[in-house]
C-alpha cells in the first residue's frame, strides 16, 4: 500500500509530532507523540483529503518489558473518502498519561473510560474518568499483563442503601403529602 499524500502534509503541519508512518499488512499506521495528539487529530478531521470524521475505536496494548510499555491505539474512519487510519501513541510505564481526545471526538468518552478501567491509562481533561466495566473499589487494572487471570478481589463491605431522597421535602415528617 502506498502512503497517501495527506500524510506528508500532516507531517509538514504537525512537524515533530509525527514519529513514524508505516503500512503493515495494508493498514495505514501513524505514530504520534502523546502531547500533540489533539492537534494531529484535529488536522486529520478537518483536512479536505483526510476527512476522518468518524471515530471507531480506542484501546491500549500492554507490551510488558518493552520501553515504552503502553501503546494507545485509535482507529478512525472517513465516511466521505472511504478510508481508514490507525493512530498510535506510546506511553511510559511510570506515567501512562495522555490528553483526552473527547474535544475532537466526543464518542471517545466511554472508550477512554474503558481504557482507564482496564489498562490504567489516564486521560487528562476527561469529563468523567471513572470505572465503567468494573466497580468502584476494584484493585488494579485487569487487562495489564502483570495482572494474574486467577487473581481474586477482596470482598467488599456491605454498603448502606443509597439515600436517594435527599431533598428536604422527602424527609419523613417534613413532607406534607407523606407524613
Amino acid at each position: 500500500m502506498e502512503i497517501p499524500s495527506y500524510v506528508n502534509r500532516l507531517k509538514e503541519a504537525c512537524g515533530a509530532a509525527i514519529e513514524e508512518v508505516s503500512t503493515p499488512l495494508g493498514d495505514l499506521v501513524v505514530l504520534v507523540k502523546a502531547d500533540q495528539i489533539v492537534e494531529a487529530l484535529n488536522w486529520l478531521k478537518e483536512d479536505e483529503e483526510a476527512l476522518f470524521d468518524h471515530f471507531m475505536d480506542l484501546t491500549a496494548v500492554d507490551y510488558i518489558g518493552r520501553e515504552p510499555r503502553f501503546e494507545v491505539v485509535i482507529h478512525l474512519v472517513s465516511i466521505p473518502k472511504s478510508q481508514r487510519i490507525r493512530i498510535k501513541v506510546h506511553l511510559d510505564e511510570d506515567d501512562p498519561v495522555m490528553p483526552t481526545i473527547t474535544p475532537v471526538y466526543p464518542a471517545a468518552n466511554w472508550f477512554e473510560r474503558e481504557c482507564w478501567d482496564l489498562y490504567g491509562v489516564h486521560f487528562t481533561g476527561h469529563p468523567n474518568l471513572t470505572r465503567i466495566m468494573l466497580y468502584e473499589g476494584f484493585k488494579g487494572h485487569p487487562l495489564r499483563k502483570d495482572y494474574p487471570i486467577k487473581k481474586t478481589q477482596p470482598l467488599m463491605e456491605l454498603r448502606k442503601p443509597e439515600v436517594r431522597r435527599s431533598d428536604e421535602a422527602f424527609e419523613p415528617g417534613k413532607n406534607p403529602n407523606n407524613p
Binding site: P24, L25, D27, M56, D57, H75
Partner: peptide, 18 residues
C-alpha cells in the same frame, strides 16, 4: 508477529477486531 484490524457489518453496526 504483527497486528491488524478487520471489520464486518454486524447486526448493530461495525464489529471490528483488532
Amino acid at each position: 508477529p504483527g497486528e491488524t484490524y478487520c471489520s464486518v457489518e454486524g447486526g448493530n453496526g461495525e464489529v471490528g477486531f483488532y
